[in-house]
Design a protein around this nucleic acid. Structure first.
Lengths: 243, 243
DNA sequence: CGATCGCTTGAGCTATCTCAACCGGCGTGG
DNA sequence: CCACGCCGGTTGAGATAGCTCAAGCGATCG
């Protein structure tokens, strides 16, 4: 049941968990439709604006920024439940691109309704701010990882986080979860070269900590993974608001 | 004069610029007081909550995350006009610490009033979300810099950005602006060692691009600085909403 | 069957790190 | 008023994590 903050109707529950009934109901009111896209589709383009905002219902994707040099920085991975396009909604333009890695099913909102949401549903507006603050938090985490940790630590951390999110989403069965990205995507997220990322992955595999192949991730030794990732084994899952 | 988005009352003007009259007036309504702190004061502590939120009026500070290993990642620099504590206000706890580098004057808000703001001032609530989205944008930028750029590029980029913000705040006089941080702070922000950061700074100085000493930054060759920082020389300043 | 894609592995190179020493300025205490 | 310690900055030297280049492999697809 929801926890209430004294003055703020913050309802908390596990982050990235599948949506509840009431959540779905609410969304139905704002959604303008559903969309299914093929792998490789660009959902949002850096620098452009989008008349639509999305919530991922199924499938996975990537958020990234492109450089003039042709490099790219992956700034996050999109999993079911994630909101896409808040920046487009509230700022002039997206600051990063979003691309579908797998086939995705999306809940579509109309950007124009965002303002009415702020006017008529302050709790939901609050939630949006919450989402944005959470994004900010995760970006801060990523920055810290990329700025301070060694290659093996970065890779282990990423694996551990994927596993956490997979767990929260009920995607893990028998220690296995789908992870349909390329090593290049992970490398671009961690600020490492593809070659080095590969070597670190092989190392985790050789040490019996985790395997990732054919789009499936299997965590074999959670304790040593946490250790390598510099994460406490008893960390509690993040929470996110209903939206 | 304010630009209006069709459905959203977004008012735009240079980011980081000093506050306008109306802005100050509005803030007066919500502020519960002012605070002046000495250098070294911790304004927000990672993991804790704060009953107060701030807007920096004068002085500068640092946002950072600490590691178990004793390392830290500086995730941003606080300059006048910056909002401090949105995460504390909207999430359970701050995700990073904030420390005053110089003496600072702060505008103090009561966290409890945040919710009434969402209820009664949807435009301001919108602005808060805007601020959060902008933070997110800058963090994404930082992540890209730390993840993809070389040492000299990172340092040049940081200098260029300080200079941009200084310009917007009217702090630059005769190409000089105050920059009261230590090289260690910059190093921790860029994910470089102190020694290497120093060497890159010396290089920029030796090449007549920029000097930074005794707390003052002087940009001598803006064009070459932009080039080194991989920034377009004609970039336009960010905008931020009134709050 | 050839081409492409993602993954894997080896070898050599270098940007960056660590260690260590030194310097000047400043505040403090004798 | 001097001596000392501390802090921030500077510089050199050697070590290494991670990069680039390059080649090869299996799977998939047309």
């Amino acid at each position: 049941m929801p926890v209430q903050c004294r003055n703020c109707p913050i309802r908390k529950r596990p982050l990235f968990a599948p949506m509840s009934e009431s959540e779905v109901d609410f969304m139905e009111g704002f959604k303008t439709g559903e969309l299914e896209v093929d792998p490789g589709t660009t959902l949002m383009l850096e620098g452009s604006n989008s008349p639509q905002l999305y919530t991922a219902l199924e499938g996975m994707g990537i958020r990234y920024k492109s450089f003039a040099s042709g490099e790219r920085q992956v700034i996050g991975f999109v999993l079911p439940g994630d909101f896409i396009g808040l920046q487009a909604g509230v700022m002039d333009a997206m600051q990063h691109s979003v691309e579908a890695t797998t086939k995705m099913r999306l809940c579509v909102f109309d950007r124009k309704r965002l303002w009415s949401l702020f006017q008529d549903h302050p709790e939901r507006a609050y939630d949006l701010t919450w989402i944005s603050a959470v994004e900010e938090h995760f970006l801060g985490e990523s920055l810290s990882v990329v700025g301070q940790m060694s290659g093996i630590e970065r890779v282990a951390r990423a694996i551990a986080q994927f596993h956490d999110r997979g767990n929260a989403l009920g995607m893990v069965e028998g220690k296995r979860m789908p992870l349909p990205f390329r090593q290049q995507d992970l490398a671009d997220a961690l600020g490492l070269s593809l070659v080095h990322t590969n070597k670190m992955l092989r190392r985790l595999c050789a040490e019996g900590i985790a395997e990732w192949k054919n789009g499936w991730l299997k965590v074999l030794d959670s304790a040593r993974l946490c250790e390598t990732a510099q994460l406490p084994a008893d960390r509690e899952p993040m929470t996110r608001p209903l939206i």
